[in-house]
Amino acid sequence: MKIVLFTHPSFLGHQSMPRYANMLLNGMKERGHEVVVWTPKARFYKIPSIPSFKKWLGYIDQYFVFPLEVKLKLRNSSKDTLFVFADQALGPWVPLVKNRKHVVHCHDFLALKSALGMVPENPASFTGKLYQSYIQRGFSSGKNFISISKKTRHDLHKLHLGEIANSAVCYNGLSRPFFSLPRQSSRDLLETKLNIFLSQGYIMHIGGNQYYKNRQGVLEIYETWRSVYNTKIPLILIGEKPTEELNLLYKKSPYKEDIHFVTNLSDEHVNNAYSGAICLLFPSLDEGFGWPIIEAMASGCPVITTNKAPMNEVGGMAAFYIDKKPTNAEHWQQWKEDGAKTIEKVLKLNRFQHTETIERSFNQSQKFTAEYSLNAIEIIYKEINQVV
């Protein structure tokens, strides 16, 4: 099977999407398929300019120059070629091949839902609304879709403006391996690496500063747990540097000496961080999938996350759940106390209960291997490619 894979340009500096695209690229090549990547090159983007203007130069490369290149390449593409879009955010390019065999991978529609006023926690700017409308019109010309969760597929059917011919769910597979490493040695290694006292354990969060990651909620639950249960265990937040708002909350915290923001941690050390943690605290407001849930489970780390799809799709019966943070401030205190109780519940697991939790978590993580995901995706590709 001949596959053309459309991907985000490397100059955007994305992290998760290139990993997903590489998983598709390498996975389909390993299965004997001929795969080439079509992606915009930095032409206007590399022109020296101020950062705010650079984004618009990137748009010229993506939405003016690249489509012209694609139209030229299509002249030499055989009719049996399958055109694959690694992300529905590449929607503006979908109309270029809407009458050819194609499939669009869908991850999350959080930005589009924000632009449509469906996410009160994240209002969009005027230009943001225009951009998301442009993307929506683009992917709506597509007919065949693969979503990474039932939640994502539900959103797709709600937001697609046309008719959908095929719509499948193929859960994400881990794009890199995670293992359950020895707990104490993982803590010792991380303690040496970060120069933080971690040998007695720590609570962990991993993620960026996107509103839906709810890093502020992580600090609020942690502070409530510390104040109610009077237990001195540090909190490690792995990911981007904190925003000004988050940094202000941190500085006001009476437990700031035990709160640590960690950036630029290698994949190997992230695996150690999961394995050494008492739990992963992951109270996201929303996700497309929720990679950290499976990464933690595969690493032998109990998971506390939000009882909302897709987090509970991914966590299954293995995770510990709390409600989504309410939008009404009057209910925040109860939410924080419930989160604190759940941390304490995990902390108080006896040896048998802890072992049982880890076993359930590992078994759950095996449903989301790269092999399983790629096999399911390949089946869909073949079905679409066989349609006359």
Rank of each mutant, 00 (worst) to 15 (best):
M118G: 00
Q364R: 15
D258R: 05
S77R: 00
G207P: 01
L116G: 01
A309D: 08
P254I: 04
E69Y: 09
A124P: 06
V70H: 01
L219W: 06
Y255W: 13
S365A: 13
M118I: 01
A376C: 15
K143F: 09
F83I: 05
E244W: 10
K143Y: 13
Y20V: 15
A298F: 03
H157C: 12
P283I: 04
M317E: 14
N172F: 11
V314E: 07
G316T: 07
K232H: 09
I380F: 14
P292G: 01
Q386I: 12
Q184L: 12
A277L: 00
R176F: 13
L130C: 14
Q200T: 11
L25D: 08
T305G: 04
L249G: 04
H260T: 00
W56H: 12
G142I: 12
S125P: 12
P326R: 04
A273Y: 06
V314W: 06
L249K: 11
H157I: 14
E268R: 10
S284C: 05
S125C: 12
N247Q: 11
N328F: 09
S284T: 12
Y63A: 07
V388W: 08
H157A: 09
V119G: 00
G173K: 04
S16H: 05
V4M: 02
L174R: 03
I47H: 02
G13C: 03
L248C: 06
K98D: 06
G128S: 12
P67L: 03
T127A: 14
S141C: 07
I377K: 09
P234D: 09
V346I: 13
F126K: 14
Q334A: 12
K101D: 00
G117H: 08
G315F: 09
S299F: 02
